[in-house]
Design a protein around this nucleic acid. Structure first.
Length: 176
DNA sequence: ACGATGATGAAC
DNA sequence: TTCATCATCGTA
């Protein structure tokens, strides 16, 4: 059975923490010309709504974060530290600003390295996760058990007070 | 432990 | 218009 299902809005329109968990074991697929690169997602972080101080949406809608307020299943890509693009997928209901940061995939650890390896830039911002955009996520039938998932505080958000301590980072331990 | 490197948002 | 900050990473 070659089980393959491209994930769409129906997958992403749920609680961002649930989506972040369920993205582990799914495949991030990037088409460049005729070639497709598929890598299993191994590390994610949830950014949850207007009250999460670690989230870009905490202070309301801006030009940068406005896609977080749009419908789920869209890419949110932005530049940090002048060098690294961060890849997020918008989650939850429309107007509820939430997203999941894809921090790591198999053999590529670190959100800046993922985007560099897959040549993902801000040109993907606000595009839909879909085959036609050249970047999408597939379910290939891998089942990840709760015991295989490590939950930790998020990285690089020490400024966020009590939100910095919430276990919104998810790591699939069964990494190749 | 620290510098690279530039967009962003808030202050002025 | 200036300024501090930043969901990072490679080098030391």
């Amino acid at each position: 059975m070659n089980h393959r299902r491209i994930l769409d809005k129906t997958f992403f329109c749920h609680d961002t923490r649930v989506v972040a968990l369920e993205l582990l074991g799914k495949f991030l697929v990037r088409r460049i010309g005729k070639k497709e690169i598929s890598l299993m997602i191994t590390e994610t972080e949830a950014y949850d709504g207007p009250n999460d101080k670690a989230s870009h949406a905490y202070k309301g809608k801006t030009k940068r974060n406005e896609v977080m307020f749009d419908e789920s299943g869209l890419w949110y890509v932005y530049l940090v530290y002048g060098m690294y693009n961060m890849l997020n997928i918008v989650t939850g209901a429309k107007e509820y600003p939430a997203a999941v940061l894809i921090r790591g995939v198999e053999r590529v650890n670190g959100p800046g390295k993922v985007t560099k390896f897959l040549k993902i830039t801000k040109s993907f911002n606000k595009k839909k996760s879909s085959r036609e955009s050249g970047l999408w996520i597939e379910d290939r039938g891998i089942v990840v058990h709760n015991k295989e998932i490590k939950k930790t505080p998020r990285i690089g958000v020490a400024y966020a007070g009590k939100w910095a301590k919430k276990p919104y980072r998810f790591v699939y331990k069964n990494i190749l």
